[in-house]
Simulated scan of single mutants.
Amino acid sequence: MNHRILELYSGIGGMHCAWNESKIGGEIVAAVDINTVANEVYKYNFPLTNLINKNIQSLSAKELNRFNINTILMSPPCQPFTRNGKYLDENDPRTNSFLYLIDVLDQFEKLEYILMENVKGFECSTVRRLFVDKLKECKFEFQEFLVCPSSIGVPNSRLRYYCIARKTAASWNFKRRDEIMSVIPVDYGVPNTLESIIEKDVSDKYLVNDKLLKHGNIMDICFKDSIRSCCFTKAYTHYIEGTGSVFTAATPESVKICFEKANSFDVGSEKYVESLKELNLRFFTPKEVSLLMSFPDHYKFPKTVTLKQSYRLLGNSINVKVVSELLKLLFNHQ
């Protein structure tokens, strides 16, 4: 079947990449987002896709039905469901477009499949309850997940909520549960290491600066043989704590010795910083981050997009591999 897909909150095209990776037949007939920089990146990678730069609420169900879609892929704004976003839930104006979609969901004439991604915390929200109640009202079967890419062999943490829903009468290829599942039922094989995504001859501009080296004691340091890395956020390279990992070509033993030496000085002092410099700690490049988020190797950022913008856009994006595997479950695709 040649599925017709509507990609909402399309961002830089993570859902599009996931659809391509899944090898399920179909076409992204339209993508919708209001972020002009994200749209620039999307258009650069998918120049033939009909990209609509509009607020979703300005598009009526009648207009969207003209695309003759049977599938919606979407990643609505996550800030209303995070601690940093003050967890305002349905009272956050950034939920308005998604609440609008929930309201008109029964007006999509041929809609059979939905995949939705959001941040951990969404599962506890009022908006989630409204969403699943609407799915039930529209006669969708659905399965919710809280899944991290590391559970399918990707060396990166990014725990997210997912919901796959469909109207088809065919049974699922896995045992569906009423509770949220924490594992995707796939055999991923041996976990990958970071070595395969590390770029050679990386510019010194990616080195951790003196100001941030003062916080070396809270850095999450990764090596080429690491099978893990922390979740990258939009604040990566500007703050250390909770924004993502850093990399060194040094060995774990060398790092241990270096920190033992540095810790003989006051943490954050000039001598402490100078001691850590020999490790050449650096940030992962946008290319490396995109590969850790399972974007394809040929995916690129246009030169007009700044380094800061690249990190922000990636921090707001999805893990392509996880969504690809969930799409295969959704469509019973082997």
Rank of each mutant, 00 (worst) to 15 (best):
P80D: 07
L130E: 13
D89K: 09
V132K: 09
K86I: 00
K110P: 00
E123F: 03
M116F: 06
F131Y: 13
Q107C: 08
K110E: 12
F140N: 04
E144T: 00
R129S: 03
R158I: 05
C78S: 05
C138S: 09
E137G: 05
R160K: 04
R129D: 12
L99K: 14
I152K: 00
L101A: 08
P76Q: 07
Y100I: 05
P80F: 13
R158T: 04
D103Q: 14
K120P: 00
D92N: 14
K110F: 12
I114S: 04
N84K: 08
R94P: 14
Y87K: 14
L115T: 05
R158G: 06
S151W: 08
V119Q: 13
I72D: 04
R83K: 13
L159R: 14
V147R: 06
K86G: 01
V154M: 12
D106E: 11
Y161W: 10
L99T: 02
M74N: 06
R83H: 06
R83C: 00
S151I: 01
P80C: 07
K86T: 03
K86M: 11
P93D: 10
L73W: 02
D89A: 11
S125P: 05
E112Q: 15
E144Q: 05
L130T: 03
S150C: 08
R160N: 02
S75W: 06
M74G: 14
D103K: 15
L135W: 04
I152D: 01
F98L: 10
F122I: 11
E117S: 01
S157K: 09
N96H: 12
G85E: 01
V127I: 15
M116I: 14
L99C: 10
E112Y: 04
E117T: 00
F81A: 00
F145Q: 11
S97H: 02
D92V: 04
Q143C: 04
V147L: 06
D92L: 09
L135Y: 08
E112D: 15
L130M: 15
T82A: 07
L111C: 03
K120H: 12
L111N: 07
K86C: 05
D89C: 09
L88E: 15
Q79E: 13
P93Q: 11
Y113Q: 06
V132E: 14
P77Q: 11
S150L: 11
D133E: 12
P149Y: 06
E90Q: 10
L88Y: 07
G85D: 01
R83Q: 09
I114Y: 02
K136A: 07
K86Y: 08
S97T: 11
E137T: 09
T126R: 05
E144M: 01
P76T: 02
V132C: 11
D133K: 09
R160W: 02
V127S: 02
E109K: 14
D103S: 14
G121N: 08
F122K: 07
K136L: 06
L115W: 04
R160P: 02
L105M: 15
E109W: 01
V119C: 13
G121Y: 07
E90G: 04
